[in-house]
Amino acid sequence: MTIENKKGWISWFNPFKYGTDRWMYALHRLTGIALGLYLIAHVWETSNILNGPVTWNKIMVDLDYPFGAHYGPYILSLILLVAVYHAMNGIRLTIVENGLMLPKPYRPEFPYKAKSLRGLNNLLKIVLGIFMIVISIVGVYYIFTGAVL
């Protein structure tokens, strides 16, 4: 009798031993889940304005000072990083999953490194990675100082 041997959802977050694309896939899933949870919390947070200015102000301060210290900007920066990564990788996937910026069918040669995961796809990763860093620096600077860089 054969038994099941499914790797299950836990293997989404097991990119070790595979390539960069597999890492980006795992991070994309993770950031996607994080953004989904953030969105729910965000709707709850902003809906509190219906309870009047006193409640609103109290919640704003509570969220800015969680666990008794001024952690608000750090949490916000993290959310920004998550969102920027998800957006940038989303742009890359939209391009690449439509077959653009990929090589034409080629003849595989011995070390058998897949060209679809390299070449222009890699260039796209680097360019969007630079974008991500720039946007993150500007965003984090704004979160902490309130001034546009």
């Binding site: 390539g19 980006m24 077959g99 653009l100 595989p108 897949a114 679809s116």
Partner: peptide
Amino acid sequence: RCHFSGACSEVCPKGVDPALAIQLLRQVMT
């Protein structure tokens, strides 16, 4: 259903690059 994680092309012992085929197939479909 493919999400282009590229794991299939990474492990292929013959360098078939199935991930490339799936993306090109998508291009044909769209």
